[in-house]
Nucleic acid binder design. Structure first.
Length: 821
RNA sequence: GCCCCCGUAGUCCAACGGGCAGAGACACUUCGUCGAGAACGAAGAGGCUGCAGGUUCGAAUCCUGCCGGGGGCACCA
């Protein structure tokens, strides 16, 4: 009997898909009188690029488990779905096909929605949203305007990252190793005026609030965010530059080493360098600056290459000792970080030391760490030690010296304690069409004017095909009728801002919208958000560790400050699923290293694919599809189905009258599977169900038989536990057992404690750490009784020989270890 | 270069706060059943827990070092 004879996945899928559409078992209830506990399960919403693939299958199988578990527990569950539907691929496809991006986008959404219906995550479809719908992006614009009012959205000119392939600027977070995070092109620098969100105002809170997430988010995500924000504490110190009226401020984390500063470095591309360069050094400096401006981001990032720089012909005065030190320009100092200038302490900073050795500048040790002289070894000493050659700081340790140095600086108004961040403000404007228009109008007499709320949304004009071709400025600029408008303030002629927002703005608040997707008086109904949020479980890929997740945390804090929400972190728990790979390599269309989800489902069915994804290992691990066995999963599901069909005890039969051995197995599995689901170790939970299936099979074949009430109890337990992982098979089995759909509302079983205690357990008796005997004892046996039994064992006495006993360690009822004299 | 995570059977993976190395799956061997199959049921084999030390009565588990794999950061003063 082949599995297909008894269990046809496709027929079962079609049957239940239709039934579920009728009974809507996954609908969240928003009524305030519903007193059930609430849970919010969220999956990172998909971008509609073609159909769903294996990666989606894994992510949504994993994200579905906690949602389904909560349904079984009887909670009121919000498990929504939507699409992150603005973005470049749609625009590129539209150019190629001479269409509107919406056409490609919404066609793909329909394809994915149909695939999702078949894949059957427990979504509440009534809350579906798309970020490219005007009903949605109206509120993205509304939020932009609130940010603008609060000074959190602003425009400034400066050096920005430019992707030559996508023809748009990028945020720092979207440049990875000097390449565009999206398309991989080498990123260039341009000087442009752009819109920013002032995320740096929230740097401290983004860091400090991570305490709330500790242990609930993966460590590596927290670490990456910490690194990205990059807080460092130290001091601002003012140096006078000879011949310049205003002193120049530098930031240092080591004010204790001020007496060791032997030169001063200004970022070569900072205006200050050009300003203070002495005439006789001008030519050399200009040549150097030209060279620096030509180097790519990749060159600049390389730590291997030798330091470069030029002397600017000027001197700075060390504020603590009045020493004259030469001022250099170099590209190892960044114009955008700190103040674009540093004091260089080569003895205690490796970068400064490399520079000093390259250009023959002096090295002066001011912290005696007990290590060899950096000037000789070329290795800067950054550790703790006693201060030397440092006037009033002499003799202090590093930490004390830092504190003392800051005190001295502050008392003389030469500096102050200071904090710097690696994090930069979030550049949000994009020179592309298929995004949310920035709701600002530029008026010759009034300047920047926000579009009034009642005029939102500012809809995209109807552009398509060639009009969208990138030309380095936003395609929106070409829509003359759209661009020309009246100033909302003075009524005079004005133009619309032609940039659109980074799509990460759209996705920074979608999980709020799900709470009240049709709400018309704001981005969300505060009442609904209060009852549903924060999100209890968020599932998605780790690639968003410092993009979407950082931005979303920022948005939530701003909404909190606006009084719109009463919490400060949006996602209580985060799970990053691994990737699906093949033969150790990422799947890729171009190399043909691909497994098609549709093919897999056609061959084995949805449940097999889901189960294979979940059973292959812990959810965080990558899944190599070459290692999984869909056939094995199919075999298991067929076993489940057969057990349900064979179960002969009537529904409602009292399990207490059933076979106690099988009942023990059932309740042990309930207990352990529950623990494993809560610990997010779904592979182990499934293994437990497999054990129960085997035990039930055995009971039917060679035990009390299919008519025993314990078999029914086991079979029903299997169906319910399995409903978290293989919804179709579980529902079909539930029906075969004479129960009424949906199985997802059957209720999670609880283990009977009386059935969890064994009446006999095996106690291992060791002599000198080696197992010598096993005793069958009652679990509640007393330690001294067990010790007596163990010492009385013939095998133990044989092992001990003539020697005496030095010590006996008893851990009742599991083990006795006897240490011979 | 610095930091984090991970090395268990041929393979994917279990093993709770140190206590019998094995739950489950794939592959393998054997047996039974039958409608004779790539079906169903059962049994079995398989290990220096990456290596070397240490702590302990007892270590896959804790500590140190090394080797191997994965990830993050990498001129951020």
């Amino acid at each position: 009997m082949a599995p297909s004879d008894s269990y046809d996945p496709r027929a079962v899928q079609d049957k239940w898909q239709a039934r579920w559409a009728e009974i809507e078992p996954y609908r969240a209830e928003e009524s305030a009188d519903d007193s059930r506990e609430r849970r919010y399960a969220l999956d990172m919403f998909p971008y509609p690029s073609g159909d769903l693939h294996m990666g989606h299958a894994e992510a949504f199988a994993i994200g579905d488990v906690p949602a389904r578990y909560w349904f079984q527990r009887g909670y009121n569950v919000l498990h929504p779905i939507g699409w992150d539907s603005f973005g470049l691929p749609a625009e590129n496809a539209a150019i190629k096909r001479n269409e509107h991006p919406a056409k490609w986008t919404y066609a793909n959404i329909e394809t994915q929605a149909a695939s999702f219906h078949r894949y059957a995550p427990s979504f509440d479809w009534s809350r579906r949203l798309h970020t490219s719908d005007p009903e949605y992006y109206k509120w993205t614009q509304w939020l932009f305007l609130r940010f603008y009012e609060r000074g959190l959205a602003y425009r400034k000119g400066g050096q920005v990252n430019w992707c030559p392939n996508d023809q748009t600027v990028l945020a720092n977070e979207q440049v990875v190793g000097g390449h565009c995070e999206r398309c991989g092109a080498l990123v260039e620098r341009r000087t442009l005026t752009q819109w920013y969100f002032r995320i740096t105002d929230y740097a401290d809170r983004l860091l400090d609030d991570m305490a709330q997430l500790e242990g609930r988010w993966p460590d590596r995500v927290l670490l990456m965010q910490r690194n990205w924000i990059g807080r460092s504490t130290g001091a601002d110190v003012q140096f006078v530059i000879e011949g310049r009226a205003e002193p120049v401020t530098v930031f240092t984390t080591r004010p204790d080493t001020l007496y060791g500063a032997t030169f001063f470095v200004v970022a070569a591309d900072a205006p200050l360098a050009a300003e203070i360069c002495a005439p006789e050094q001008r030519a050399e400096f200009e040549a150097y600056r030209e060279q620096v401006s030509r180097e790519s981001e990749i060159d600049r990032l390389s730590t291997e290459r030798e330091k470069t720089g030029v002397f600017l012909g000027r001197y700075a005065i060390n504020p603590v000792n009045g020493e004259r030190i030469p001022v250099w320009a170099s590209d190892y100092v960044l114009a955008e970080y700190g103040h674009g200038a540093i004091m260089a302490v080569p003895a205690h900073d490796q970068r400064d030391l490399d520079f000093a050795r390259r250009f023959g500048l002096p090295v002066r040790v001011v912290v005696d760490t007990g290590e060899a002289d950096p000037a000789q070894t070329g290795v800067a000493t950054a550790g703790d030690g006693r201060l030397v050659n440092s006037g009033p700081l002499d003799g202090l340790g590093k930490a004390d010296a830092i504190a003392r140095a800051i005190e001295v600086l502050e008392s003389k108004s030469l500096g102050k304690a200071s904090v710097n961040y690696r994090l930069r403000d979030w550049l949000v404007s994009r020179q592309r069409f298929w995004g949310c228009p920035i709701p600002i109008v530029h008026c010759a007499s009034c300047g920047e004017v926000p579009v009034p709320d009642e005029d939102l949304p500012v809809r995209l004009p109807d552009l398509r095909g060639a009009d969208l071709a990138p030309k380095g400025t936003s395609p929106l600029a070409a829509a003359g009728d759209w661009v020309d408008t009246a100033c909302p303030r003075c009524g005079g002629p004005a133009t619309r801002d032609t940039d659109t927002m980074d799509t990460f703005v759209d996705s920074s608040w979608y999980y709020f919208r799900y709470c009240s997707p049709d709400y018309a008086d704001g981005p969300f109904d505060p009442e609904q958000v209060r009852t549903w949020m924060p999100v209890d479980q968020y599932t998605g890929g780790v690639e968003h560790a410092i993009l979407h997740l950082l931005y979303s945390r920022f948005f939530t804090k701003v909404l909190h400050d606006m009084g719109m929400v009463d919490f400060t972190e949006p996602f209580t728990r985060l799970l990053n699923q691994g990737q699906v790979i093949l033969n150790g390599k990422a799947m890729s269309k171009s190399t043909g290293n691909l497994v098609d989800l549709g093919d897999q489902i056609a061959e084995y069915g949805v449940d097999v694919v889901r189960l294979a994804m979940l059973f292959s290992g812990p959810p965080e691990d990558d899944i190599d599809w070459a290692d999984v066995s869909p056939q094995g999963m199919a075999k298991f599901l067929a076993r489940v189905h057969r057990i349900a069909a064979e179960t002969a005890a009537p529904a409602g039969a009292d399990p207490a009258a059933g076979d106690v051995t099988l009942r023990r197995a059932t309740h042990r599995v309930i207990d352990e599977a529950t623990t494993m689901v809560e610990a997010q170790r779904f592979n182990v939970a499934i293994a437990r169900i497999m054990e129960l299936v085997s035990a039930t099979r055995k009971a039917i074949d060679s035990g009390p038989g299919a008519a025993d009430p314990a078999v029914r109890e086991a079979a029903e337990t299997i169906a319910i536990l399995l409903s978290l992982f293989a919804p179709y098979t579980a529902e079909e089995a539930w029906e075969a057992l004479g129960r009424q759909a949906p199985v997802i509302r059957a209720g999670w079983p609880s283990a009977d404690p009386a059935l969890l205690v064994e009446d006999q357990v095996t106690c291992v008796v060791q002599v000198a750490g080696k197992v010598r005997d096993r005793l069958e004892v009652p679990p509640g046996i007393a330690a001294d009784e067990l010790e007596r039994l163990a010492l009385a064992s013939d095998k133990v006495r044989a092992a001990l020989g003539d020697g005496g006993v030095r010590k006996v360690i008893v851990r009742a009822p599991k083990i006795v270890n006897i240490v011979p004299a």
